[in-house]
Design a protein around this nucleic acid. Structure first.
Length: 338
DNA sequence: ACCTTATTCTATCGGAT
DNA sequence: ATCCGGTAGAATAAGGT
């Protein structure tokens, strides 16, 4: 652990799933920050992250051959999956006298009807998907998560779960569920902040989804949460990894149950900061973790008691002055050695 | 529908650094 | 002056009756 450096590089062009530094394949991609972090050595590749998913699928070799980039791909993110019937009409068609007035009127009417005949569900979906893409880009989520959320929402719509609930709350809940399924570390609170809906409504909607759609509830990945918060606090990788250690111990001692995972992650970071001498104040951490110093203290107190960390009081006096980088600092230039 | 329990939040104060 | 630790009271959620 002591020979770890925090270092940032541009992404390599070679094999994308291996760390260019240590060769490990335990790489975590954080789409919201546009970073790829090696969980083993802490190397951060921080250029833009590309979504490398195939543009659309082919099912047979022939299809693969024929696949061209003409026309939009089928997309779950469009209400009609990208297949729309429009009744066209060149300016000349209707006015050049090739048609009788009544025929013209008929066609105009047809076009009008077609535009409006899309069902209420489709209109609902249209609105929902617009909101979905707004939320996803605000949270910096890749499109496959968006797709997942869209699919969930379609199911909910089909089962009539939307009735009586707001579109915004259901779409936010679908997106949150998608993050959980795809192991993207976003908390409900994160979603609430970019949404216009209250936390209460979204969590209610989320529970409805879980129950009615029998979704498996993938546990939130607290370790990733630690890296995300740690990174926001500009803590070095040794401190973040120490926090993970504490977190693992906490898991073993079963003191996570019922607690907000975010505050537990925050508490681990606070303690590890004290241990490595890279301290942040309770207020700083609480702000980043969207909790309060009070809750943070309670978690810290439990951790100290359960993990037998009382002796860190000794090191507390010897702690180095906190080094806190603001957003403006170019931290890519800084390599910290231990 | 009501009660209980657990968690977290806001607000607040006194003591330590 | 700021940080830390503790307390009281309200809101909220989940579970039981």
């Amino acid at each position: 652990m002591n020979d770890v450096k925090t270092k940032r590089v541009s992404p390599s062009t070679g094999s994308e799933d291996r760390c260019p530094e240590c060769g490990g394949n335990n790489i975590f991609t954080d789409f919201s920050r546009g970073e790829r972090v090696c969980m083993d050595c802490g190397l951060v590749q921080d250029d833009r992250v590309m979504d490398r998913a195939a543009e659309w699928r082919s099912f047979t070799p022939q299809e693969e051959q024929k696949r061209s980039r003409v026309g939009a791909p089928l997309s779950l993110l469009r209400p009609d999956k990208g297949l729309t019937t429009e009744i066209g009409g060149q300016p000349g068609d209707l006015s050049s006298g090739k048609m009788t007035a009544s025929k013209r009127a008929k066609i105009r009417r047809l076009r009008w009807v077609n535009k409006r005949a899309r069902s209420g569900q489709e209109r609902n979906l249209r609105k929902a998907l617009r909101e979905l893409s707004r939320l996803s880009s605000a949270l910096g989520l890749p499109s496959y998560v968006q797709q997942e959320a869209a699919t969930t929402y379609r199911k909910a719509l089909k089962k009539n779960l939307i009735r009586g609930r707001s579109i915004s709350s259901m779409i936010a809940a679908s997106l949150y569920a998608a993050c959980r399924l795809q192991k993207i570390p976003r908390t409900l609170r994160d979603v609430v902040q970019v949404s216009q809906v209250s936390e209460k409504d979204i969590s209610k909607a989320f529970r409805v989804l879980i129950e009615e759609l029998k979704m498996r509830r993938a546990p939130l990945d607290v370790n990733k949460l630690v890296f995300r918060l740690g990174s926001s606090l500009n803590l070095t990788m040794p401190t973040q990894k120490k926090a993970i250690e504490l977190l693992e111990q906490a898991k073993e001692k079963n003191i996570m149950a019922g607690k907000n995972p975010t505050s537990m992650a925050a508490a681990c970071l606070y303690l590890s900061g004290i241990i490595t001498g890279e301290r942040r104040t309770q207020q700083q951490i609480a702000d980043i973790a969207n909790t309060t110093p009070v809750t943070l203290r309670n978690r810290v107190k439990e951790l100290i008691k359960e993990l037998g960390l009382e002796n860190i009081e000794v090191k507390r006096g010897a702690a180095a002055a906190p080094v806190y980088f603001t957003e403006e600092d170019d931290i890519s230039e800084i390599a910290v050695e231990f």
